[in-house]
Design a protein around this nucleic acid. Structure first.
Lengths: 227, 227
DNA sequence: TTTGATATTGACAATAATGTCAGTATTGGC
DNA sequence: GCCAATACTGACATTATTGTCAATATCAAA
């Protein structure tokens, strides 16, 4: 072995015979592409291994780059985390508002609940945000605030619209807020302890579906009652 | 500077004149007491600063000891974390089962909900357990499993008892499970995002109380309906 | 008082993570 | 084809944290 011909020597040694490292063409992405790949990898690590799994070296390996490249794109680890927060927030926002926007006002709660849980629980978003909240990093970020505010506003507008159609009295806004809060809490909770609870109680995938349907019905009955 | 008289020289130099450190009587606790203090400090750090705040040096400083003392009592950092899990689990179990056990069967859900939220959300327990779950550490622990199973059993027994009193048909066990799951999810969720959501929506302490009451009523109505 | 057990400590070792830097390779525009 | 901009790398510096160890202080029992 002796001198294990590092890439520096590769230039002179040339790639004559069987090339161990075939010059290893360095790949160069656009800055945006690189950032996206890095964020994806970071998110995946976070979702799978939890907070402790967020190490620059690991992420770099996943992407297939060196860890200073990450620092190049995000300044610091903290910068990476911030970018992660920002992206999760906007993704969540879009996903939720999108779900609410789609479909007509007459759709019942079940669909909405399904979408919320999908957006929060099924994907790793809630786990990611939970970690951020646990580390107290999201306090400064006002994004999360706005998201919830928007959601409640849109939701309430729909309720009012719906109750007007039916000629019923306008619903209480706090009631709408509570419905949204409960849903958010439940979705976050499920994202974290859902798997454990399901396992503990012998609930399979289908059982979880039933639970969500049950919850949707619970809310739906409540909404029907109130409006 | 040269040789900065390390403590090795202290032996010969002796503490003759004005003693900087007045002998600093070393305190010695019983092993149990020490373990308890350390766990308390660790729990407090975890609750306040999140996972990243769990550093031996910090905890040691909080307790007023040196960090090797912690290692002496818990073997390793991992051992400390395990002990933390174990204690949180049993505390949670006792707290929840205690809450269910107290009071007669006729008590409505509101009280129970209140107790659950208190046990999980108000104290840092849920945040602590959440972190453990996020790091994937609690998977191996079967404790959590048993707790949930027990709770559901007790709860369902009460429902059956109650419905028998009233001469109504026995409730569906899965329904009880779902009620418990929703409550657990909601409490965990609130522990994590509760403060944020409250802030975002301008809900004060009293508003949170109202939310819990609202939730309790929601469940209560459902239970009344079903039984 | 003596003595054995052990809680506790300071100093050090080992490791692991982020961050810095100077240099290299690639791309797009001219 | 040349050039400027910059994505990327390897090696190193820095720092923080867990863990080890030999020594010491304290308590309880004999």
């Amino acid at each position: 072995m002796s001198s294990v011909a590092k890439n520096s020597a590769a230039a002179s040694a040339a790639a004559s015979q069987t090339v161990e490292k075939p010059a290893a063409k360095r790949v160069r992405r656009t800055a945006d592409e690189a950032r996206r790949l890095i964020l994806d990898a970071a998110e995946a690590r976070l979702a799978k291994q939890g907070p402790e799994g967020l190490r620059l070296q690991d992420i770099a390996r996943d992407v297939g780059i060196s860890h200073p490249a990450i620092l190049h794109h995000f300044e610091s680890r903290e910068g990476l985390v911030r970018a992660l927060i920002a992206r999760a927030n906007t993704q969540l926002r879009d996903s939720l508002l999108g779900a609410l926007g789609k479909g007509d006002a007459s759709r019942d709660a079940a669909d909405h609940i399904g979408h919320v849980f999908e957006a929060l629980s099924d994907r790793g978003t809630a786990r990611l945000l939970s970690w951020l909240l646990l580390t107290g990093r999201a306090t400064e970020q006002s994004d999360a605030h706005n998201v919830m505010g928007e959601i409640v506003d849109v939701l309430h507008a729909r309720r009012e619209e719906y109750s007007k159609e039916k000629g019923k009295p306008a619903p209480d806004k706090e009631d709408t807020l509570f419905v949204a809060m409960l849903t958010a809490n439940a979705a976050f909770g499920e994202a974290i302890i859902g798997r454990q609870l399901a396992e503990a109680t012998g609930l399979d995938q289908d059982g979880i579906k039933r639970f969500r349907a049950w919850f949707a019905k619970l809310l739906n009955d409540h909404l029907e009652d109130k409006r």
